[in-house]
Design a protein around this nucleic acid. Structure first.
Length: 368
DNA sequence: AGTCAAGGTCTTGTTACTTCA
DNA sequence: CCTGAAGTAACAAGACCTTGA
């Protein structure tokens, strides 16, 4: 059994985008493989199967599990799969021609370009990349500028994040790093007093503005090329590594949330199909019982049986409880379809009715 | 042209920290 | 104040791709 479901409007999304970039974002082509028949692998996305032949990288199945389990198993038993192809329109990028990384003349991210244009660079260079969450804090500007200079001077520095954080902590400005006025009330002093040995991982909360800006960037594009990453890091006065990590985590969160939604949907589908299956089984039992039972006309007096010459149905004139002419034995039943549509999604109901198409059972017509 | 190592990025899973009820 | 849950920044491992030798 293979049931392919397609949600979202995959037809209208990303044709040009996919043609331009070889690496669509994971949120763009989202699919779930659900093994219903006891299959061991849930990696059913057809897009992922094209990967060996140079297909896109990011269109992986959420159930596949890139690391360890799913990647090397290769047991892609696609015999009993419910495939869901979700294409949230909100994640369709508006401009992704930058992911190829070829054009450096035009800025790839429109929001960044806008910021870069709208923010006049000061000749001194100090604070030119300061974002909105920095300059309204006059009390920490001096420290921040030192940090900003230290960070922005070498955005591609190989210094590890630990070293960077440790250095900032030693400098005394780590606890106040990039804290806007809106977050000034946060208790930031706590983090700097327990990492005196530098062995504990320093976790710095991003400011609301930084998070909002990153969120906006993520809406535009869920992946960044190195240039975009560096530009965004400069813009937000973060390290490129932080921006990279943020986008990684953000993608993971998006995928997790989407997985939850898909699981809910699949659960409802499964319940509906189970109910449908139960009903069909019951109906099949009834029909079998009816078939194995002696024909009802045998129980009738022979003289009461007549046949309609036109439709060749047996008609009875007595009060034996037989069906009137033209009455089917199996009553037409209301049919409910899964997925709440109230109608056939495809034309599957033809097969569900035994392939007869009209729902007529051979016992409907009792021929004498 | 085929191969291999290096570098980069991705996903997935985990850890540690922060916030809040 | 204490505590557990939730959110999230940061990291590690493994896989894959690209590139240059």
């Amino acid at each position: 059994m293979e049931l392919a479901l397609s949600l979202g409007d995959s037809s209208q999304s990303l044709p040009s985008f996919l043609s331009k970039t070889p690496k669509p974002s994971p949120a763009l082509d989202f699919c779930i493989g659900l093994a219903l028949g006891g299959g061991s692998s849930a990696r059913s996305c057809s897009a992922s199967e094209t990967r060996k032949s140079g297909g896109p990288v990011n269109d992986r199945c959420c159930g596949g599990g890139g690391g360890g389990g799913g990647g090397g198993s290769g047991s892609s038993d696609s015999s009993s799969l419910l495939q869901l192809d979700l294409l949230p329109s909100s994640h369709v990028p508006r401009s992704c021609n930058s992911s190829t990384g070829n054009g450096s003349s035009h800025f790839p991210l429109p929001w960044l370009a806008e910021r870069l244009v709208s923010e006049p660079e000061s000749s001194s260079g100090r604070g030119k990349n300061l974002d909105v969450n920095r300059f309204p804090v006059p009390t920490i500007v001096a420290e921040d500028q030192d940090d900003a200079a230290a960070q922005s001077s070498s955005p591609n520095s190989a210094v590890s994040s630990f070293q960077m954080e440790f250095g900032m902590a030693l400098a005394g400005g780590g606890s106040k790093r990039s804290e806007p006025e809106g977050d000034a009330d946060r208790d930031c002093s706590r983090g700097s007093d327990d990492d005196e040995n530098g062995l504990t991982r320093k976790k710095l909360r991003l400011s609301k503005e930084q998070s909002a800006f990153l969120e906006e960037s993520f809406k535009e594009q869920s992946t960044l090329n190195p240039k975009q990453k560096i530009a965004l890091a400069k813009q937000l006065n973060l390290r490129p590594r932080q921006v990279e990590v943020w986008f990684q985590n953000r993608r993971a969160r998006t995928k997790l949330k989407q997985t939850e939604i898909d699981c809910e949907y699949l659960k409802r589908c499964c319940e509906t199909l189970t109910e449908e299956n139960r009903r069909l089984q019951k109906e099949l039992q009834e029909l079998r019982a009816l078939k194995s039972a002696p024909p009802f006309y045998m129980q009738l007096p022979a003289t009461t049986l007549t046949m309609c010459p036109s439709c060749e149905r047996v008609a009875t004139a007595t009060t034996t409880g037989a069906s009137p002419p033209g009455t089917n034995v199996s009553r037409p039943r209301p049919r409910s379809y899964p997925f709440g549509g109230g109608g056939p999604v495809g034309q599957q109901q033809g097969k569900a009715q035994g392939g007869q198409g009209q729902g007529q059972h051979p016992s409907d017509h009792v021929v004498k």
